[in-house]
Structure formats: C-alpha cells, structure tokens
Design a protein around this nucleic acid. Structure first.
Lengths: 191, 191
DNA sequence: GAGCAAACGGAACGTTGCTCCGGTAACTAT
DNA sequence: ATAGTTACCGGAGCAACGTTCCGTTTGCTC
C-alpha cells in the first residue's frame, strides 16, 4: 500500500506548507530557541498562525517533527555503541554524551523536557518512548557485567541528565557533559 | 544608629503593605508556585499591582525576600556540618541534601534559578553569592582530605544540583536527592 | 468549468508582565 | 488643630503572547 491507505490524500498546498513550516520552525528554533513565539514561525514561513495550529496542534508536535530524525539517530546509536565497546559502562557513558550533545545544541529544549511544564506531554512521551528502552538496554548490559549499581531506572537517569542540560547552551563555563559523566561515574560500583 | 540612618523613615502604611505582601506572596507561592501571576498575589494581599512593583521591582526581589530566611539557614548549616562530621565528604553530602530539600519544596524555584531565564539575574546572584562560598568551603575541606577530585568548582556543582531539582515536586517517582547524591558519589576518588 | 471539501489567513479573545498617573492619606511644620 | 507636602496607593492601560474561529481562497474531482 502507498502512503495513503484508506485516508484521502493530502492536498498539495497542505503538504507544501508542512515542509515550509518545518524548515521555518527549524530555523527559528536555532535563532530564538524552541520557545520562540508562534507568530515568528508563521511569519518566517509566510503563513498565518492558523496554519501552524492546523498542522501541529501543540508546540510539542512541531518540536517532535523538527527533531524526529536526530532522536531516531540517537536511539539507533545505542545498540551500535554496545556492540562496539568491550565495556557496557563505557558504551553507556558515550551514549549519554550523545544525548547531552543533542540536548545542549537545541536552545531551551532541555528546559521543556521535564514534565511540570504543561502542554508538552506529547514531547515528553515521545522522548521517553523512544529513548528509555535504549537506555534501559545499556543499563541492563552494564548491570549484567556487574559494572554498575542496579537501583536506578532508565527513566530517572534520563530525566536527571536532561535536567543537567538545562541552560547549558547559554553559559560556556557550565559543562553539562562533565556533570552527566560524573553522574555515570557515581553509578559505578566495584565488581 | 536605628533602622534608618540618613534615609527618611518609611511610612507606616508602606511598612504594613510590605509585610502583607510577603505573607500573600508566600501563600500564593505555596499554592501556585513561584510563577504565579502578579495579579493573584496583589489580589490576595488586597493591594494593586503597582504596589507590588513599587516594593519589589522584579519578581526576583520578591522571591528573595520571601525565602531569605531559609537561604540563610542553609548557608549557616554548612560550617556546622563540617564541624560535626569526621569526613568532609559526608558533610558535603548532607549539605547538598539540605539544599535539595529546600529547592524541591518550592514549586518551580529550581526552574527559575538557572540563568537563561532573563529577569532573574538578581535571584541568581543572591543564591550564588550566599551559597557558593559555603559550598566552596565544603569542597575545599573534602579536597584537602583527599576524598574528592578537585576539578569541579562549587558554582558548577550547585548549578548541576539545582538543575537536578527541577520539576521534582511534581513527580513523586523522581528522586532528586538520590541523583544529587549520585553526583557527589561520582566526585569521590580514592585517597 | 462547476461544485465542494479542504486548507488558509488573520482578526479577535483571554491571559500575562509591567508602566503610568490621578487620587489619597500619612507625616511635618506651624 | 490645620494646612501643606510628598510618599504612597490603586488599577486602568499597553504590549506580547497563545489559541480559537470563521469568512475566504484554493486545489481536487467529475
């Protein structure tokens, strides 16, 4: 079956606008962060605000669409690192580095990730659903190798690392990577 | 000299309003977090919004005034813990616990602490100015005892711990204390 | 080309932070 | 006590933002 099974095909202008919007959003996110005013994105894309909301009902949907590729890449990197490294703990550390790098290069993304901000449940859910299994796999491997303690779940680790990244891009002297690495070190246990 | 050297004494109604405002703000902060609308606080206090801005030009000033006592208490606890503990590292761990407890019990305070939020420089500065020296003292003591590595400055540690606390009050399963403790563990080195 | 549903645009509404100024009431000098 | 001074108060008003809603346009189908 093609790209439209059952449902009617989208109109050409709609498809065009969706791409235009993603490009505009991506550009504006880089310039002004993921909190950028909706109107800015609309203006940049040359459409009305209504069009944005029709394509992406919530800001979370837009953010997810913009960064989907990178999140997938990060998720895919997990098993690969596990295969390429002798030590699962080392693989975990490298994966966390990737995750941190991804977050700190997106202005304000880390700041929205934590759930108390309402309206971003979808974003939160997507990240968790996609990355937590990967992190769990790494954690389990390290645990099985006896390299780390087992009393920290992947969700909480990721949440903590995500938090550490907040505001990192705005302050050069603050090195989120190092703090995250410290956390991973703290996870280590003699074995 | 009395409580007014040089400057003219404040009017009685002004002093009264200041206290009323602090009480109202404190109550509203507990109910709705430190992001609560200014109008809510004004209504609660039975004054106009102008009165708030006159007494506390920025929200940061208001927050500082409300929590000053607790911050001071936390600062004072540092040297005390250092005196009461054999191991400086243990003292540090306990102090961080205090700091975390303080932050997580204030809805959204941790979220505002990190500098990328503009308009809160004063808050940021106050916290740093008051607590960083204390943290430095603990860190130095632990370093001198050879218990920890020395390549992490107090500012960054506090920033990281503060970040870990973000959103903690909204999610019972997320234990900021434990993650902070893990960070401190990661700081440890054989010596 | 005519008809229709889908998509568009932006005016409009509610909520916020913050300012500004006419009115009020607390101090002071007499 | 009283009048004058001035610090202080209150909330109307403005700007920026998220979000909705509906009259208009546009692309697709026959």
């Amino acid at each position: 079956m093609g790209e439209n099974a059952g449902a009617r095909a989208k109109r050409a202008d709609a498809r065009r606008n969706e791409k235009t919007l993603l490009d505009a959003a991506s550009a504006v996110f880089v310039e002004s962060g993921v909190d950028a005013p909706v109107r800015d994105i609309a203006t940049r894309a040359g459409v009305g605000v209504g069009t944005i909301y029709r394509h992406f009902p919530t800001r979370a949907d837009l953010i997810i669409a913009v960064y989907r590729h990178q999140v997938e890449a990060c998720a895919d990197a997990g098993p690969k690192l596990l295969a390429d490294n002798e030590s699962p703990h080392a693989a975990l550390a490298q994966w966390i580095d990737l995750f941190v790098d991804f977050l700190v290069t997106k202005h304000g993304l880390a700041g929205i990730m934590q759930s108390d901000h309402s309206g971003f449940e979808a974003l939160h859910a997507y990240f968790l659903e996609r990355l937590v299994p990967v992190c769990t796999e790494l954690l389990d491997a390290a645990a099985k190798a006896g390299e780390i303690r087992t009393d920290l779940e992947a969700v909480h680790l990721m949440r903590g690392v995500g938090n550490l990244c907040i505001g990192a891009e705005a302050d050069d002297s603050y090195d989120a990577r190092r703090l995250a690495a410290l956390l991973i070190t703290g996870l280590r246990q003699d074995g």
